[in-house]
Design a protein around this nucleic acid. Structure first.
Length: 292
DNA sequence: ACCTCGACCTGGGCGC
DNA sequence: TGCGCCCAGGTCGAGG
């Protein structure tokens, strides 16, 4: 589900409500391995700690506490909500394609796998239909060596995202450029939606080999990646199905998409028909006339 | 180093 | 109504 803009939108929501919240009890309700260490350790270690301001790198939420830092990856369908006991719960809505989705705060349901009960009565709810999400608890000295973060390339909204290293990473690979963009070690935070958008915006065919890209193309792509992500953040994320922000709202960026999911429709650039194919094992939409 | 495939999961849509 | 198949904002490891 969530790519960088969706995770950033959730982070901003958490920034308003999470800092200072003290965990009175952590409740792990899932049967499967979603978290490390094990559920018992997780529940014991979190107890009594307060959250500080949330951060993000690529698609990872970085949630510092007093004695640990929590890394959260939402996978395809992860949702985080803060629940206020004084506000009414909202029933789930049955939506086409998505199935049962929350619209604002919700009670525990079959897909709610983690509940953090705070001292002030509020709760953090983690809901994840497909259970591809991951929670990892690290001590400060372990965080720098955390494999999840070590694998990540620069986040496009930090100074570490530099044209020179971006170019070098793409020029040295014979993989197609779409696969390279999806590689979180090249740039952290791009997924299937924003990869298609960035390639469309920069006029580059998803099947082009990294090594074949000209300097001008790489410069356009470098900029386009940040632009499409920025637009996604401004629109509070893209919602096709499961994605909701920390308050349960959908994003609106789907209305701004120029390529992703628009196969068979008219290209906004040339009026021709957008094509669909599989590139890097992912469904890809592109314009045969505008992208070279 | 890179590619492809399958695995991990659930649920909705569609065709028969 | 039901079944089987396809699809989905993501990653990971195995094997070639």
């Amino acid at each position: 589900m969530p790519e960088l803009p969706e995770v950033e939108t959730i982070r901003r929501g958490l920034e308003r409500g999470l800092p200072g919240k003290r965990v009175e009890r952590a409740e792990v309700r899932c049967d499967r391995v979603l978290l490390k260490p094990d559920a018992a350790t997780f529940e014991r270690e979190l107890q009594g700690q307060s959250f500080k301001a949330p951060g993000r790198h690529g698609k990872f939420l970085i949630l510092p506490l007093e004695r640990h830092t929590l890394l959260v990856h939402l996978g395809m369908t992860g949702q985080i909500t803060l629940r206020d006991p004084d506000q009414p719960d909202h029933p789930f809505e049955r939506l086409p394609v998505t199935g049962l989705q929350r619209t604002s705060q919700h009670p525990v349901d079959a897909h709610t796998h983690i509940v953090l009960h705070f001292a002030d009565g509020h709760q953090l709810m983690y809901r994840d239909i497909r259970k591809f999400g991951k929670w990892r608890l690290y001590r400060p000295q372990e965080l720098a060596r955390a494999p999840e973060l070590k694998r990540l390339g620069p986040d496009p909204f930090t100074p570490a995202y530099r044209l020179e290293s971006f170019q070098a990473a793409l020029k040295r690979t014979r993989r197609n450029v779409k696969a390279a963009l999806l590689d979180q070690g090249v740039v952290a935070g791009v997924g299937n939606i924003y990869a298609d958008e960035a390639l469309f915006r920069s006029g580059i065919r998803p099947t082009r080999r990294g090594v074949s890209l000209t300097r001008a193309e790489l410069e356009r792509l470098f900029t386009a990646v940040r632009e499409v992500l920025e637009l996604g953040i401004q629109n509070r994320g893209t919602t096709f199905s499961n994605y909701r922000d920390a308050e349960g709202r959908s994003g609106s960026n789907q209305a701004s998409l120029q390529a992703y999911g628009r196969y068979g429709q008219e290209c906004y650039g040339c009026g021709g028909e957008l094509k669909r194919s599989t590139v890097g094992q992912r469904t890809t939409t592109w314009c045969p006339r505008c992208q070279h």
